[in-house]
Design a protein around this nucleic acid. Structure first.
Length: 291
DNA sequence: TTCCAGGGGTAGA
DNA sequence: TCTACCCATGGA
């Protein structure tokens, strides 16, 4: 069956999805020939379905591969999650205005990009962000792939493809599995602790997705997660739609140092000052400045 | 062998 | 607030 979600104007489906590496992490998969984003998704009732997303004029089409018809609740759930993942609710108009005078950045986002892909739950985005710290992107892809492969629910029609594990599934997993199979390194303890906190209710992670919360409040909550520091918190603020903080990591240092400081070793304060004029849109300005 | 990759926690100042 | 040191993992 199919669901059509109206999109803002301008909107570039592929540009937005591929503007960030998240589309390369399981259970997302990008089909370049079809320009289609796929994702195995576990619904609240435990059913596992395959979503195929494609850009249409004025809309995103969601094709749901499923043996049995979806319930109205299931359809509503999928629509809501896809809407969240694609950030279709955000008003990027002010961002476009701020970067319009910058030809290089404007060329990369002016046609409707900038709605960087996120996951249906903040739990998944947080786990993935932790898996980007102190490692290479290649290893992040592998770590997330193993997490999904070992703990996620299989798609009935193709059991090799799986959904992202729920917090309950991560919390209930045998700890030995992490060291022998999933191999997140020291990140395993952070991920498992977060999953336990979510399951036992001591951390109401998904509540942070509610709109209207001040960025400072979100930031404080995110930094209280073990394994989430400055870089990870600012990356998650971006995920949540707050773009006023920069993700200062080795990539940021290399890019800003190379482009604006002739390869010298500026301080973090000097580097972040480069994007000061972009105000509440610093993250996206940096992101598309870097390419 | 050593270094380090899209860092972060902790102890000690 | 700042620094030194440690942390699993795997590639260079």
């Amino acid at each position: 069956m199919e669901i059509e979600l109206p999109t803002p104007t301008p909107y570039d489906f592929a540009g937005s999805v591929k503007g960030h590496g998240w589309y390369q992490l399981a259970p997302f998969r990008w089909d370049e020939s079809l320009r289609q984003l796929e994702r195995v998704e576990r619904l609240d009732d435990g059913r596992v379905v395959l979503l195929r997303l494609t850009g249409r004029p004025g809309a995103v089409r969601v094709t749901v591969e499923t043996g049995q018809p979806l319930t109205p609740t299931g359809i509503e759930t999928i629509g809501r999650r896809v809407h969240w993942m694609l950030k279709l609710n955000e008003d990027l108009g002010p961002f476009y205005e701020v970067v319009r005078p910058h030809p290089q950045i404007w060329a990369r986002v002016g046609g409707g990009g900038g709605r960087l892909l996120r996951c249906p739950t903040l739990f998944e985005d947080t786990v993935k962000t932790i898996c980007t710290t102190n490692t290479t992107w290649r290893m992040t892809i592998d770590m997330v792939g193993r997490l999904v492969e070992r703990l996620g629910d299989p798609l009935p029609e193709d059991p090799a493809r799986r959904a992202f594990p729920t917090a309950a599934q991560v919390a209930a997993a045998d700890p030995a599995l992490f060291s022998t199979e999933i191999r997140l390194g020291y990140r395993s303890d952070y991920v498992r602790q977060l999953a336990r906190e979510v399951v036992d209710g001591t951390r109401t992670l998904e509540a942070l997705r509610a709109s209207g919360r001040p960025a400072a409040e979100l930031r404080k909550a995110l930094l209280s997660i073990k394994g989430v520091g400055e870089y990870a918190a600012n990356n998650l603020l971006m995920i949540l739609g707050a773009y006023g903080q920069l993700p200062v990591d080795s990539e940021f240092r290399a890019f800003v140092g190379g482009k604006y400081f002739d390869g010298q070793a500026p301080t973090v304060r000097e580097m972040t000052a480069v994007y000061e004029a972009f105000g509440e849109w610093k993250f996206l300005a940096y992101w598309f400045d870097a390419g």
